[in-house]
Nucleic acid binder design. Structure first.
Lengths: 237, 237
DNA sequence: CGGTATTTGTCCGTATGTATT
DNA sequence: CAATACATACGGACAAATACC
């Protein structure tokens, strides 16, 4: 498989991130980029389209393609990236603790919450994310056992997605995400350094599917409200 | 301009929303769709790509294109849609009150918050969104006066975006959005029906730009935490 | 102000690769 | 092995918005 347009997308993105192109700059014209990369215009436009979706660039009809003022959303919570990828990007050094890793079966009440198949075996784990000595995120994960086989604490402390993609050769497809606010539970109070006057946590619920469409994961990321930030980019159609 | 692919996107989207296609169904093959709409395959693929970005469909190499189980994100808070569009879509009947509409100048401290140009004249308004007799969202808006000309209370109660696009013939381009949690201010307490034990609000900050790139709006949507929901769809690349 | 060149937007047709049936 | 279906890429054409002279 060729996927030239992905390489070009990554190349241009790198040049923006390394400030070879600055916000407000005009990129070379699409025809110039065609000559530079030795590809057709359709391929260039596919690469530029990816950058536009992420909020890195904006095209103006008849004028050119301009670099936006941006912290691209893939660096924040937006986009489907693993926690490890996000923290590496942002440059913040997180530590992950795994106080719990066990096997269980999806019972009816769990099925309702997780949307995972009733009766399926799953790994159930808690992961606590520590920043600057404070525990600010509690991840409650459920992974289908027959998909994410042989999960260990070491893998969970590093990156489960990396393990799935590189070791198990699985293809992650898409995720639905819901953000809301809930009262803090006793588990939140046990694992997070909550502030005394804050009886709430921000909850990000993730329903993650493989490329073939089957859901293999449900995760609740429970955030200390004062440290929660989510950024997003949207275009008008 | 033709924009056949937009029409096809809207047509297929409509068929999914009206349950002509159900979740799990396979759409006709791309070649069948070409024949049906009388267009080339590239045009069909552009339409399908829009649906895929919104989380309505998912393509499987060699198998077909399948309808996902979904409330598409444009129906919720995701996507760049006006409050009126979102509420019409969700079917919830909101009422909008406009307790304040005044003109002001962007001073240095406002410039820092809103990112609007220093010294520019702006409309400043409060809009309270009421649902089921409860005031649950306080919108604090700043619109550049030389862009959104002649703004009135009537327009603000209906839809400012509709006014901009249909009356002023302006093209809205893109927005950056940040979601976080803040302590409730005295204004929140004045305008929102906050619950007594909830000293916080969920704040959605919007930096909205015209198609030509200039920012014309800053809005803070301040939500009662227990009524706040945000949904999102993401793909792995 | 007008004509020409440049640049992005849309669409077409074709060819080839790769995954599934 | 062949047929089907999606993925990638090429090249050409014309439209629409803008820039330049």
């Amino acid at each position: 498989m060729n996927r030239r347009y992905i390489q070009i997308y990554e190349d241009i993105k790198g040049k923006i991130l390394e400030h070879h192109y600055l916000p407000g700059d005009k990129l070379p014209s699409e025809n110039d980029l065609c000559r530079h990369y030795g590809v057709s215009r359709g391929t260039i436009r596919k690469a530029l389209n990816l950058l536009a979706e992420e909020g890195m660039i904006h095209s103006l009809h008849g004028k050119g393609v301009f670099v936006l003022d941006n912290k691209p959303i893939t660096f924040s919570v937006g986009g489907l990236v693993s926690f490890k990828e996000a923290s590496e990007y942002s440059g913040q050094a997180f530590v992950t603790h795994v106080p719990k890793l066990e096997s269980m079966v999806i019972n009816p009440s769990l099925h309702k919450i997780t949307q995972l198949p009733l009766g399926a075996e799953a790994y159930h784990l808690y992961r606590v994310r520590e920043l600057d000595g404070e525990n600010i995120i509690l991840d409650i994960n459920y992974f289908l056992k027959d998909v994410v086989t042989d999960l260990t604490k070491e893998i969970a402390e590093n990156s489960i997605y990396e393990y799935m993609e590189q070791t198990l050769q699985l293809k992650i497809g898409f995720a639905r995400r819901v953000i809301l606010v809930e009262p803090a539970t006793s588990k939140d109070k046990e694992y997070l350094d909550l502030q005394p006057n804050s009886p709430f946590v921000v909850v990000v619920k993730n329903f993650v599917h493989l490329y073939d469409g089957i859901q293999f994961e449900y995760t609740e990321s429970r955030h200390r409200p004062d440290r929660f930030v989510f950024t997003d980019f949207a275009r008008r159609r």
